[in-house]
Simulated assay, not measured.
Amino acid sequence: MAYERDHLGFLQDARQWDMQWVHQSAEALNLEITDIDEQIIQALRDFYFEYDLSPAMRPLVKHIKQTVGPDQGNSIWLMQRYGESPARTLALLAGLPKPKNCL
């Protein structure tokens, strides 16, 4: 499938998202997607479609803590797993727009 991306590589239309997108994007980032990653990505997509917003780091951590669990819902774990900008990386994997305050 050909995905329409913006100039930063983010999916243009979140409704085009599928697991193939996740795996292609993860491969480009040298990430192996696990069940926990899939839960986090789905939680992020649920947040986006409820609030029409890709969350920045603080709301992301809070939402992951509430929906996935306290082990993953902390900034240290998220940064170790997804690099220095977890909100940006997870938005990319989830097929969402880049969070507003991410570089």
Rank of each mutant, 00 (worst) to 15 (best):
Tyr51His: 15
Arg45Glu: 12
Arg15Lys: 10
Ala14Leu: 10
Met19Pro: 12
Leu29Tyr: 05
Glu27Gly: 13
Val22His: 04
Leu44Glu: 15
Asp35His: 03
Leu31Gly: 03
Trp21Ala: 03
Leu53Lys: 01
Arg45Ile: 05
Ala43Tyr: 04
Glu32Asp: 04
Tyr51Arg: 12
Glu38Cys: 01
Ile40His: 01
Gln24His: 07
Glu38Val: 11
Leu29Asp: 06
Gln39Leu: 12
Gln12Phe: 04
Ile41Gly: 00
Asp13Gly: 05
Leu44Thr: 15
Val22Asn: 05
Asp52Ile: 13
Tyr51Lys: 14
Glu38Phe: 09
Ser25Cys: 11
Ser25Pro: 08
Ser25Ile: 12
Glu38Ser: 07
Glu32Trp: 08
Glu32Tyr: 07
Ile36Cys: 03
Arg15Gly: 00
Leu29Ser: 06
Ala14Asn: 15
Ala28Met: 14
Ala28Arg: 15
Asp18Cys: 01
Leu31Glu: 05
Glu50Arg: 13
Trp21Ile: 02
Ile41Leu: 02
Asp37Glu: 12
His23Glu: 15
Gln24Arg: 05
Glu32Val: 12
Gln12Tyr: 10
Ala43Met: 08
Asp37Phe: 01
Leu44Ile: 14
Asn30Leu: 04
His23Asn: 11
Asp18Ser: 02
Ala26Glu: 02
Ile41Asn: 00
Ile40Asn: 03
Ser25Met: 14
Val22Ser: 02
Asp37Met: 07
Glu50Val: 06
Glu38Trp: 05
Gln39Gly: 01
Asp35Glu: 11
Ile40Val: 13
Asp52Leu: 08
Gln20Thr: 06
Asp52His: 12
Val22Glu: 02
Met19Ser: 10
Asp46Met: 12
Gln39Phe: 06
Ala43Phe: 09
Gln42Lys: 11
Ala14Gln: 14
Leu44Cys: 06
Gln24Met: 05
Ala28Thr: 11
Leu29Pro: 07
Asp46Trp: 14
Glu38Ile: 11
Asp18Gln: 05
Gln20Pro: 02
Gln42Ala: 08
Ile41His: 04
Asp46Cys: 03
Gln24Lys: 09
Met19Trp: 15
Ile36Ser: 10
Asn30His: 13
Trp21Gln: 06
Ala14Pro: 15
Glu50Phe: 11
Ile40Phe: 07
Ile33Asn: 10
Asp35Trp: 09
Phe49His: 03
Trp21Gly: 01
Tyr48Gln: 04
Asp18Val: 07
Asp46Glu: 14
Glu50Asp: 09
Gln39Asn: 14
Leu29Ile: 03
Met19Asn: 08
Gln20Gly: 09
Tyr48Ile: 01
Arg15Tyr: 08
Ser25Gln: 15
Asp52Ala: 10
Gln24Tyr: 09
Phe49Lys: 01
Phe47Arg: 04
Trp21Cys: 02
Gln20Trp: 10
Glu27Trp: 11
Gln42Arg: 13
Glu50Ala: 09
Phe47Met: 06
Ile41Met: 03
Ile41Ser: 02
Thr34Tyr: 11
Asp18Trp: 03
Phe47Cys: 04
Asp37Val: 03
Leu29Lys: 09
Ile33Ser: 02
Ala14Arg: 12
His23Thr: 06
Gln42Asp: 10
Asp18Phe: 07
Ala14Asp: 13
Leu53Met: 08
Ile40Pro: 08
Trp17Arg: 00
Leu31Gln: 05
Leu29Phe: 07
